[in-house]
Write a protein that binds this DNA or RNA. Structure first.
Length: 465
RNA sequence: GGCGCGGUAGCAAAGCGGUUAUGCACUGGAUUGCAAAUCCACGUAGGCCGGUUCGACUCCGGCCCGCGCCUCCA
């Protein structure tokens, strides 16, 4: 069975065949570090994490790069507002980003290049574009002349003249542009702004150049997969193609073979975005929910479809995970290597079919049902299968007991584990004395504090809501 | 105006030209000192109108509604 991926370029699912099966290359657009990221920013990270895991099972080496944009006007503005240096601010948010993404069980990428470490590569690429007649210098700016690229628009499936006609009010007209659609590769910096020396004076890069330059520098001239949110298709990725293709000798060498784009997160049916202000940061969500619940919630819809982000989605994700972890009671956390099982084969085939993750979740739940009906050796074996299955999508990697005892930042003022254990001990004695009134009283007391008790032959377990 | 996506049961969300998606919630039963967890039972859902077909949620056409992109954005 082969991996099939939906390619935005061709608008269809295609069989994935890497240029070099010994080393697959993937690049995903990372954050601009001027703030905590919102949950919409986390969706591609989680989605491409699952693709990364899938590719790693199929190929000996996968080079996955995710950039850090640490030069941007929004960073400059935020640093100024905070009275902080740009370096301090961006470093702080890089750390926060890495922590947040780790909380969502995402593996770190192979490479996390920063824009500010790759200015040379950008300048080189811009120079190549000028030499090849695709870019020009004007009033301290360097611009890409879109009309020199016959292929421009092939990713977003638009024609240049239609774009301009439709967007005439929004396209920035500037004296230094030859044509309105031309976009900035390099712009001049004033003394109070970050800047680098260049053949065109002290300045800083435009938005799009960092990705194409870093891809060429750190991965290859042609890479296998490039991912990001659907809102990056135009202009960002379209411009990357223009830069990454036109800068090379042939001018036709393919830049990226498979373009993948995830759908948006919506709030009340509308796109979540920083500019609209209708967003939740991953930080604040992690105060209220385990990272795994957030991850699960992000996986409930197919990656190319919009996903409505609601409280119900999260509590439903929590309940769903409760069921899965319930089936993993007393099971070891370690994943058994090289396990084979029809359910794993089925799950793998869903993932290979353009990441059909909702169907993977269905397989997980079917397994959980089977486990709950099984006993002894069979049950143990199925639990190992479920652990493995979870690993395919970055779920179910913690101890079941720890899962059920998870405490949010907001709950920390409540009962401690020791308090709870003490009350349970008291209740056990009461039960032994057939003092059921007192036993029930303790249970109600705990229930009011969000603690649910479960009696069994082996003793009493408890879970936090 | 151009390009694109979607409308499935109370909610969320998939596959599929004919046979249970799945989860959450609800209800009844088993189990339990009472609970919880678990198991069993329980939903002919597919925006509207045509067409193709022996048969359509699935394919085709039209319409209605919602959303996105069209140079800040994941």
């Amino acid at each position: 069975m082969t991996i099939q991926l939906y390619n935005t370029l061709t608008q269809r699912k295609e069989v994935f065949t890497p240029i070099n099966p010994d080393e697959v290359t993937m690049y995903v657009c990372g954050p601009t570090v001027y703030n905590f990221v919102h949950i919409g920013n986390a969706r591609p990270v989680v989605i491409f994490d699952i693709l990364f895991r899938l590719l790693q099972r199929h190929y000996p080496s996968v080079k996955y790069a995710r950039n850090i944009t640490d030069v941007d006007d929004k960073i400059n503005a935020a640093a100024k507002a905070n009275g902080e240096t740009i370096a301090e601010l961006s470093e702080r948010y890089v750390q926060a980003y890495n922590q947040d993404m780790a909380q969502l069980n995402t593996q770190p990428p192979t490479l996390a290049p920063r824009a500010t470490d790759n200015i040379d590569a950008m300048i080189q690429q811009i120079q190549a574009l000028i030499e090849r007649g695709h870019a020009y210098e004007s009033e301290g700016h360097v611009l890409f002349q879109v009309s020199t690229d016959q292929e421009y628009g092939k990713l977003s499936h638009r024609k240049l003249d239609e774009m301009i006609a439709g967007a005439s009010e929004r396209v920035e007209e500037a004296s230094y542009k030859r044509e309105p659609a031309d976009f900035v590769l390099w712009k001049p910096s004033t003394d109070d702004l970050p800047g680098w020396d260049s053949p065109w004076g002290r300045g800083r890069p435009g938005w799009h150049i960092e990705c194409s330059a870093m891809i060429n520098k750190h991965l290859a001239n042609t890479i296998d997969i490039h991912g990001g949110g659907q809102d990056l298709i135009f202009p960002h990725h379209e411009n990357e193609i223009a830069q990454g293709t036109c800068c090379h000798e042939s001018g036709t060498e393919q830049f990226v073979r498979y373009w993948m784009h995830n759908g948006y997160l919506n709030i009340d049916g509308e796109k979540m975005s920083k500019s609209l202000g209708n967003f939740f940061t991953v930080r604040e969500l992690l105060e209220l929910w385990p990272g795994e619940v957030i991850r699960y919630a992000l996986l409930t819809a197919h990656y190319r479809k919009p996903l409505d982000w609601t409280k119900d989605l999260l509590s439903s994700a929590k309940s769903s995970l409760d069921r899965l972890y319930g089936a993993l009671r007393d099971a070891p956390v370690e994943i058994e290597p090289n396990l084979t099982h029809p359910a794993l084969t089925e799950l793998e085939s869903h993932l290979q079919d353009d990441l059909a993750i909702p169907q993977v979740l269905a397989v997980l739940h079917t397994l959980a049902g089977d486990i709950n009906k099984a006993n002894g050796k069979e049950k143990r074996a199925l639990q190992a299968v479920l652990r493995s299955a979870g690993g395919y999508v970055g779920l179910l990697d913690q101890d079941s007991d720890a899962w059920f005892k998870w405490q949010s930042g907001k709950q920390e003022s409540g009962l401690s584990d020791a308090d709870i254990d003490a009350l349970i001990a008291e209740r056990a004695q009461a039960k032994k004395d057939k003092n059921y009134a007192r036993a029930d009283e303790i249970r109600v007391e705990l229930k009011n504090q969000g603690i649910t008790l479960e009696d069994s032959r082996e003793g009493t377990r408890w879970t936090r809501d």
